[in-house]
Amino acid sequence: MIRFVIERFFGMFVTMFFVSIMVFIIMELPPGDYADRYAFRKFSGTGVTVTESDLDNIRAELGLDRPAYQRYFSWIGGILFRFDFGDAFAYETSVNNVLGQRLGLTLAILFSTLIITYLVAIPVGIYAAVHRHSAADYGLTIFSYLGLALPNFLLALILLYISVKYLGSSVGGLFSAEYQDAPWSIAKFVDLLKHLMVPAIVLAWSATAFQIQTVRATMSDEINKLSVTAARARGIPERRLLFKYPARLAINPVVSTMGFDVNRIFSELPIVALVLGLAELGELLIQSYLDLDMFVAGAILLLLTFIIVFMNFLSDIALSFLDPRIKLKG
């Protein structure tokens, strides 16, 4: 068990090493380099003409004249040893400052989404499997189809439209105006929770639809297992039987796909955040891609992926507790 945990723990860093190379490649992809954009930002509109030698000076100053692998190591080294993600030139500050509170808000959105997803998907999936081919089951199947077909950002737009048109208020943003710049307080926290509801529901939409199907499929398989019939033959009451045997196992695939859910949520987060005006990492990611502010983009991509990889690690550990076959080996 301990060996298993240690293995997974180091595996996580190996994965992150390769991910960081991918991310660095993406950062290097846009045409022109950091110096061009830096100079353009700094001097455009000022009437100063930037010559090629000026650019070379900037490159030398920023260390951009070094080969790519050296730049990679100084970038990743800065992150690992000084927790320094580089400079966000569009904001003329460090990336760390820009990310700041957005990371916390991103995590808040992520976890409220996950909680809603699992609170809905697990019981509903179990119900649908127990009542197969009932009206409720068919209704859920239709919902699952819609869950995939209706992209989250469209759902967000629809909710926005409804709220503005019929409720007369906007559901966008993460804070009401009066709390926007206020220091943290219980009132501000409650306000945040209220604002988290809409993005969390929007983001949980497709994840829930997907997980209901997973739970339903596993549960349907498990219900027909001989071990369940054997327990029924022991005279165990039906309800207790369902919870002890098939339902217990129907949770496993949910736990094992937790990282996948986070991946899906992060995939949809930027666009939903843009539509709903949420000041978190995803929205900033789009903005930095549009600005070609690649240090910010790289930092966000790396952070989001790290959270996914870490959740994968957690789900592996959780799964090993749920399944004695893994727990007792290694």
Binding site: L226, A230, A231, P324
Partner: peptide, 18 residues
């Protein structure tokens, strides 16, 4: 299970693995 008990063909799968 009380008055009448039953055993099955597949000893491998008559027990829940967890």
């Amino acid at each position: 299970g009380g008055d009448i008990a039953m055993i099955f063909q597949e000893p491998m799968s008559s027990f829940s693995p967890v």
